[in-house]
């Protein structure tokens, strides 16, 4: 199938000369490189040097010339790579805000794909995709998952015994888990979290 398509595009007929750019595979590759670079820049907080119009136009041209699939899979690969990077550094949970910010910008640049290609080919919309990737790569990476849970339970226990804790941090983490969907919150946090106080209060009741 892809072979057929490629052939169709290499076949240029003068009468069907289109206004604007004619995209062949080489051009599509080049365009994707530009967009990939833009995604990296956004994650590195350098978006202020990018032109929204230019990148939107590039993404639009790719989708219009039936390279939507390439664009989408490229997006998934690039974003996964970044999240893998993030999951390696220590304070990954704090990067949540950054990821959200970047995700919104990427979604806006790729808006044409989101409105047209995504629904017609039954893909996951960009925003949801970003959340899913975060969940799979960060929250569900075994190391982070254990540490996150331990920290949360530890903090709550500390407060129960009268110590001061960073409530803002807890609130942000819980909010993040909620944003990722109720199932994430329930499975990753609520269930183990509800088991802990049982032990805590059992111990307390035996003291007195």
């Amino acid at each position: 199938m892809s072979h057929q398509k490629k052939r169709a595009f290499n076949f240029k007929i003068e009468t069907f000369k289109r206004y604007g750019v004619e995209l062949d595979l080489k051009y599509a590759k080049k365009t994707w490189k530009l967009l990939e670079h833009a995604i990296h820049e956004i994650y590195n907080h350098k978006a202020s040097g990018l032109s929204f119009e230019e990148h939107y136009r590039n993404a639009y041209n790719m989708v219009l010339h039936k390279y939507g699939e390439k664009l989408y899979s490229g997006l998934v690969a690039t974003m996964t790579w970044h999240l893998k990077e993030i999951s390696r550094c220590i304070e990954s949970a704090r990067k949540w805000g950054d990821h959200n910010m970047a995700l919104q910008m990427i979604r806006d640049i790729l808006m044409f794909m989101d409105r047209t290609f995504v629904p017609s080919s039954h893909k996951t919309p960009v925003n949801e995709l970003g959340l899913n990737l975060w969940r799979d790569n960060i929250i569900h990476s075994s190391e982070t998952q254990r540490r996150l849970l331990n920290t949360l339970i530890d903090c709550v226990n500390k407060e129960r015994t009268g110590e001061f804790i960073n409530r803002g941090l807890i609130r942000n983490i819980v909010k993040m888990l909620m944003d990722l969907g109720p199932s994430v919150y329930q499975q990753d946090f609520e269930k183990p979290f509800l088991e802990v106080p049982t032990n805590f209060f059992r111990a307390e009741s035996q003291h007195t």
Binding site: A47, S48, G49, L50, S51, F52, E53, Y56, M105, D108
Partner: peptide, 12 residues
């Protein structure tokens, strides 16, 4: 809408 509300984030 996206472009106008993102003027501060990008180059334009």
């Amino acid at each position: 809408r996206a472009r106008l509300s993102r003027m501060a984030d990008f180059l334009e």
